[in-house]
């Protein structure tokens, strides 16, 4: 029996039913594939319907686990989670509890996941009840340092106020010590340290920047070392990890690379890896490459009259270009 002759009511509802039809000798293997596609598209619609509207965000920890790579970061966050929980239980039983000093230093090149992890950490700490709000305020030197005496303390206090209850993320924090003793950056650091004392339970500060610069920065400010006990290294992503990030991005958007497209991307990533720039393992650049490739694919297909589902899904090599 060909599928054209198959009565409407016989249309299967599940993969298992298709397999049973095949076993029973009612359909050929080729017809089974056709029915698979029907079943899958029905299931996809059902899943889509059940997830709209979004039933809130998934627990932050899962979101962290979904990030590609970052193995040591994930392990450390789990460690912290356990530590916090046990200190709380010790306190509940009147045992001496270690004070929770969770201010951190994130060290790594641009695009290695520092901001992303900081944002998720804020949410994890909110879910754990450590931070009341868990939001992220991302600042850099220019947001903290002013132009005249007294201006810096005022600007820094303003940003700290915004971040209360959540995370103050200071990017390229080493630049605060750039100008030496007389620089206003010093004033920003002093104001920050004082605020950390005053708002012990309501503020998490993360200092972020390149590995070497951050180590120098912490070394040359002894007051910071004891106040930032947690240091996390963000290594450059490997080619495989960057490729996995690209795949994940495309999958979420229902695109796929053709085998040749994948080769082109691998080639671009490998060339970058061989360069000595700080951007060789930069996930942000990969995201930009993929987003540009989706736009290029649209441009390539735009003139065509008839398009198959596959054509709409596939990203070809000519869609992929290195972004500068």
């Amino acid at each position: 029996m060909s599928r054209n002759e198959m009565p409407e009511q016989q249309a299967p509802n599940s993969v298992e039913e298709v397999l049973e039809l095949l076993e029973a000798g009612s359909i050929t293997p080729a017809e089974a594939f056709e029915l698979f596609r029907q079943v899958d598209s029905v299931v996809a619609k059902r899943v889509k319907a059940s997830t709209e509207p979004q039933p809130g965000l998934p627990p932050a920890m899962e979101e962290l686990d979904d990030l590609i790579g970052l193995t040591s970061v994930k392990a450390l966050v789990r460690e912290l989670q356990a530590f916090v929980e046990i200190q709380r239980r010790r306190a509940a039983m009147d045992l001496a509890a270690e004070p929770l000093v969770l201010h951190m230093v994130f060290k790594g090149n641009p695009g290695t996941g520092k901001t992303t992890v900081a944002r998720i950490l804020g949410r994890i700490f909110r879910e754990m009840g450590i931070l009341p709000k868990g939001h992220l305020v991302e600042v850099e030197r220019a947001d903290l340092v002013g132009e005249y005496i007294g201006h810096t303390a005022q600007k820094t206090r303003e940003q700290i106020k915004n971040a209360l209850g959540g995370v103050l993320f200071i990017d390229e924090a080493y630049s605060l010590a750039r100008g030496g003793e007389k620089d206003f950056g010093k004033e920003a650091i002093d104001t920050l340290v004082k605020a950390m004392e005053d708002h012990k339970d309501h503020l998490l500060v993360i200092l972020a920047g390149y590995l070497q610069e951050m180590e120098w920065f912490i070394r040359s400010n002894p007051g910071l070392r004891s106040r930032f006990p947690i240091h996390i290294n963000f290594p450059d992503y490997t080619v495989d990890e960057l490729l996995a990030i690209a795949d994940q991005m495309l999958r979420v958007r229902q695109y796929r690379l053709t085998p040749q497209g994948r080769e082109k991307l691998v080639q671009i990533l490998q060339e970058r890896q061989q360069s000595s720039s700080a951007d060789k393992g930069n996930a942000r650049d990969v995201r930009n490459i993929i987003e540009a490739s989706i736009r290029r694919q649209a441009l390539r297909l735009f003139e065509k009259k008839r398009l198959t589902r596959e054509e709409l899904i596939m990203i070809a090599p000519e869609d992929i270009e290195e972004v500068s």
Binding site: L22, A24, S26, I27, T28, P29, A30
Partner: peptide, 20 residues
Amino acid sequence: LTDDIHGEEDVRRAMASTLA
């Protein structure tokens, strides 16, 4: 896998395993 419906049930079962 075959183009047509195979006559033996054992073989059809095995094909179903393949597709699964």
